[in-house]
Design a protein around this nucleic acid. Structure first.
Length: 448
RNA sequence: GCGAAUGUGGUGAAGUGGUUAACACACCUGGCUGUGAACCAGGCAUCCGUGGGUUCGAUUCCCAUCAUUCGCCCCA
């Protein structure tokens, strides 16, 4: 192969594809339980959506966007995140005018960022997330955290650390930024070059610095908690109290500063370190934002939302062997003994598929033995043989791959026969009717 | 944008300056031409990322390039 996938993208297939499907379905399902509804903005937006929405000073907009000019000379961008898209979608369609607040939406799909690929980081990756728009309160913030926590719990991530912080309102941040600048002015000469540029651009980010030598300065820096305005402090206290009341564990982390410009007040991240100790960073993150919708000339509604990195979550699940066990099994595999019976096999397969059974057939008949091997490899519960003897009498042989029991059945009676087998065959633990140890592929077992 | 490591079949991987490139798994074929997890026999890399150089000779040494992976930055 001389043509490969684009750097930073990845193909998903096999068990991994199953995992993605399971994870996405589960997340969507739980979001629905929380009364969030699905929205699907386009992958492609005018670049302005993100320069306005995400903010021109953010790294994402400055150097990570896939932007190009289309044939109509318009600047378009593959979305690097969803929140700005949702704001555009909501204001453009005036969804706020006809629906009760808060507007609650969830989304799932690929996003694009031009970054260096590495562990848990891709240029095209999938996000699942929610936005709750129009209600400015601690309880709205907490609802999204509860939702995210519930999702993580139900996909099997037990030891999730929720890091929580408040960035306060505008007043808070202005005061705090000044305090930080004043404090760091004394030390900035001795700090790392990154911090020196952060000092100018966004002093808040200095708190996020990982350079060992800088930590001694950061330790004693002013803390945002001391600068929260009265309103912000009350709100943050309320968030913490609510979370405690709901028995949701969290850690307040002063240094938690989100990289997107639009956040204010409550911000949070979900961390999970796999048992192998690989650090994927945050598997999800979110927070409250104040002025986003105004950027799109909508009403001045605030919002709160989070997003998960599906790739990171699937990686973590894979590492810790927590992937749901979805073996792609078949009810039946139809095996024609000769090429001339393939059409009959297709008819029989179609007949069973219409009845709701998952059925495949062998298109290139070979020795019976090797077709049985294929049936086994495909995890088929039954093998159906069509041969000369059978066709003459309009019958097929159907064999239970587990019990090895086989029977000759009239084609006209095949559906009834299978229905009966499938409905009565559920006595032992595995549900297939036999009493031996083996993997079970029956419907009822799978639904548990 | 910066730093580091790696690059041999479908996969995991040995290996050597010299002429047939181990081994394992997977796969295919046959032993068993109407019955599948075992066993046995055989097959499966015109070639060791690509280009150039050193050499009588390179998959093995050098340079470049590309790709992958990891770290920093930033982020999900």
């Amino acid at each position: 192969m001389d043509v490969k996938n684009v750097k930073g993208t990845h193909d998903v297939y096999g068990e991994e594809a199953n995992a993605y499907m399971e994870v996405e379905n589960l997340m969507s399902h739980i979001a629905e339980l929380f009364a969030f509804r699905n929205v699907r903005p386009p992958v492609l937006e005018y670049s302005e959506v993100f320069t306005r929405g995400v903010g021109e000073s953010s790294d994402i907009v400055r150097k990570e966007m896939y932007t190009f000019t289309d044939k109509g000379d318009r600047s378009c961008t593959l979305r690097p995140e969803f929140t700005a898209c949702i704001m555009r979608l909501v204001t453009q369609n005036k969804l706020y005018a006809t629906n009760e607040l808060p507007l609650k939406y969830y989304y799932c799909g690929p996003v694009f960022r031009y970054e260096r690929p590495q562990l848990g980081r891709y240029r095209q990756f999938n996000q699942f997330g929610v936005e709750s728009i129009g209600v400015n309160s601690a309880s709205a913030d907490v609802e999204t955290i509860v939702l995210a926590y519930t999702i993580l719990q139900s996909i099997g991530l037990e030891n999730v650390t929720i890091k929580l912080n408040s960035l306060g309102d505008e007043e808070t941040r202005n005061n705090y930024r000044e305090a930080l600048k004043q404090y760091f002015a004394k030390y900035i000469e001795d700090m790392c070059p990154d911090c020196q540029s952060r000092f100018e651009l966004n002093p808040l980010r200095i708190l996020d610095c990982k350079v060992e030598d800088d930590k001694k300065y950061i330790q004693n820096a002013p803390r945002i908690a001391d600068y929260l305005s009265k309103n912000s402090k009350e709100r943050f206290d309320e968030v913490k109290a609510l979370l405690s009341a709901l028995s949701i564990p969290f850690e307040v982390d002063d240094s938690l500063v989100r990289g997107l410009d639009y956040y204010s007040e409550t911000v949070y991240e979900f961390h999970y370190t796999s048992q192998k100790g690989l650090n994927y960073g945050a598997v999800g993150a979110g927070g409250h934002y104040g002025n986003l919708m105004k950027e799109f000339n909508g009403p001045d509604y605030p919002g709160v939302g989070f997003s998960f990195g599906i790739e990171r979550i699937v990686s973590v699940l894979t590492d810790d062997d927590l992937l749901p066990d979805v073996s792609n099994s078949l009810t039946a595999y139809v095996m024609p003994m000769d090429k001339s019976y393939v059409n009959s096999a297709l008819m029989i397969a179609s007949m069973l598929r219409v009845e709701g059974y998952s059925v495949d057939l062998c298109y290139e008949p070979s020795k019976l033995g090797s077709m049985f091997k294929k049936a086994e490899k495909k995890n088929s519960k039954y093998a159906i043989i069509i041969g000369e003897n059978e066709l003459e009498s309009s019958t097929v042989v159907i064999k239970n791959m587990n019990t090895q029991v086989q029977e000759t059945v009239k084609i006209d009676n095949l559906v009834d026969y299978l229905d009966e087998l499938e409905s009565s065959d559920h006595e032992c633990d595995c549900g297939c009717g036999c009493h031996e140890d083996h993997e079970c592929h029956c419907h009822e077992h799978k639904e548990k």
